[in-house]
Design a protein around this nucleic acid. Structure first.
Lengths: 345, 345
DNA sequence: TGTAATTGCTATATCGATATAGTATTTATT
DNA sequence: AATAAATACTATATCGATATAGCAATTACA
């Protein structure tokens, strides 16, 4: 029950601790320990059930075999999937994950970085929030391996993976325009994030290149803790925008607010209003008639992020070449952008 | 940029490391360090931005100020909420959380316990899965603080918090019976968990005490990775159960399968079939007409679990008295158990 | 045969903290 | 005045590993 230390193994095997350390770390040859002795030591270690104390190893080597993962929030399907896959992939390289969330609080994000670096994590996968630039710069300056996920800072040279936001919205817009919608609104949030800017830009570009006006069609809601306030803003927007035919919600959180609003206004999807949303959600799949969305390939993003990190840690195969990666999203067509349907089913 | 150690502070302040340690650990009085010197040391430490290296502290003291949290899966609203609250509460006591999930794999759960104990976590909050009895017994035998959450092992004496499953189903059953439903089915899963047994028992007890038959009304679906297989089982069950009026789903995961099935069968909620579910879900709130459910008070469960753990760690106020706690769930009435409604809105 | 090189291992400083046992100085006691 | 006790600290072993420098003993070489 009580733990056996390396010293114990050394004593039992009748050798010095250094010898045990060399053997168990695969440096037997390099340190010219005889085969006989090496295998004897391995045997003793196995029989005694020896496992090195990671805390001691960490103190001595400065490496912890732990990666820090900072996401926006644990709740939320997208981040939950990301986390699960990252955990799995990391395990294949012998790394554990310490999972933390900022809950969109800048201060908490900063604290987390500090906490993780104190804990000597070997690398970071971070979903950055505005204001974290400085902290991330410091990590980089400190030579810490960092990968940003889902967003990035245009000014700073840090490896990152994210979905191609511009392309995603372009694709979604192409879809609804092809379906015949013209008065298309766009609901975004006033967080100063590149991905939001990209999405909005794609909306404007598409509308304008189609010769469509965007006047009074864009709502940027104030980011609020309180969901009710968000719903109110969206409801007012839908009510007060004449002849609105379709709405593009820039995030799934906004889409959920939208659903609530539409539900409360007694509007029928898609007859009264069509909708499409960036990012999928359980609800979108199940809520009749199904909400059309742009799907972020969580698995690919997660795996790529880990690969980028492993490359920095010298454990990757460097197969990616690039360190700034944008992944193409998919379009999932469901009922909210179909004029017809509703006949079968 | 490079870290300052306790020794650095000692050197700068012109004292010995021990003195610095005493002062910074609040043992100045006890060790009769003069006020003057103490405040000087504190000043130096602050100016130099000293933060103790948690890894070294952990090695020396055997304490890590980290708690291990093992839940079933990161995805899943209930566990996500639990985790968030636990993280918050733990922070108030100066503890960090290492968050891991078993994904319902026994083997992974066992490995996680081993991993966490190697990492010297100071305590465990575990959502136990069948087969983990032995590992948990060992933790207890090893004097490790443990709290089980959401389930427990009847045979083993370990502090635990969970919702009162029996009461929850009783309450839900009372509700639908009062609404006039009589042919009520029950869908559960063939995992050997106490909470499932309790829920099923409450169903049987209620039905029988009301003089209602339960013949062929219970479906225990095989736990499968593949969602599609689950949906198939539920679909078959609904289709082949004559005159089914209402279904009680024992978990929200089952409820989601049920929704899919009902949707595919083209049934209308609640006209063709009423439903109620144990445990809430985003989808249940948003999916029209809203799914009636038994809500587990996540916040209370999380806080209680942490309190139980803190009591064991000697940091709690022991205000709970009991160490085996069942919390009353709430009934959330929505559209799927209302014959009428659908008029307003 | 004497020196150099190689083999096969060990001694020990170190990572950064904690805590016990000890030491020098001052104050109290008889 | 001599001893005891209290004050205000310090020296150092320790947690459990790693890794550098070193040290016998053997083999190679000239």
């Amino acid at each position: 029950m009580k733990r056996v230390s390396l010293k114990d193994i050394a004593r039992i095997a009748g050798v010095s601790p250094s010898t045990v350390s060399f053997v168990l770390n695969g440096k037997a040859k390099q340190m010219r320990i005889s085969e006989t002795l090496a295998s004897k030591i391995m045997e003793v270690a196995k029989k005694e059930g020896y496992h090195p104390n990671p805390v001691a190893v960490s103190l001595r080597t400065g490496k912890s075999q732990i990666l820090g993962l900072i996401v926006e929030t644990i709740s939320g399907n997208f981040f939950a999937s990301l986390s699960r896959i990252i955990e799995e992939e990391a395990a294949r390289f012998g790394y554990k994950i310490v999972y933390t969330s900022t809950e969109n609080k800048l201060q908490k994000g900063k604290e987390l970085i500090g906490m993780l670096s104190q804990r000597q994590v070997d690398g970071y996968i971070i979903t950055p929030t505005p204001g974290m630039e400085q902290d991330i710069k410091e990590l980089i300056a400190d030579n810490k391996p960092v990968v940003l996920m889902d967003s990035y800072f245009p000014g700073i040279d840090v490896p990152h993976v994210l979905v191609n936001n511009y392309e995603g919205v372009k694709r979604g817009m192409a879809h609804i325009i092809e379906k015949g919608y013209r008065r298309i609104g766009f609901v975004t949030v006033d967080l100063n994030l590149v991905q939001m800017e990209e999405r909005l830009k794609a909306y404007f570009d598409t509308m304008h290149s189609e010769g469509l006006s965007t006047d009074n069609l864009v709502l940027s809601i104030k980011y609020e803790e309180d969901k009710e306030l968000g719903i109110q803003q969206v409801t007012d927007y839908i009510k007060n925008t004449p002849e609105l035919e379709a709405v593009f919600f820039a995030t799934n959180y906004l889409g959920l607010l939208g659903l609530e609003s539409i539900h409360r206004l007694g509007l029928k999807l898609p007859d009264d209003l069509a909708m499409i949303c960036f990012d999928d959600h359980d609800v979108f799949r199940l809520y009749p008639p199904g909400i059309t969305c742009i799907r972020q390939p969580a698995e690919e993003i997660a795996k790529t992020a880990l690969e980028l990190l492993m490359d920095q840690l010298g454990k990757g195969n460097g197969s990616l070449g690039e360190t700034k990666i944008e992944i193409s999203p998919g379009l999932v067509v469901r009922g909210t952008t179909e004029f017809v349907q509703k006949v079968n089913k």
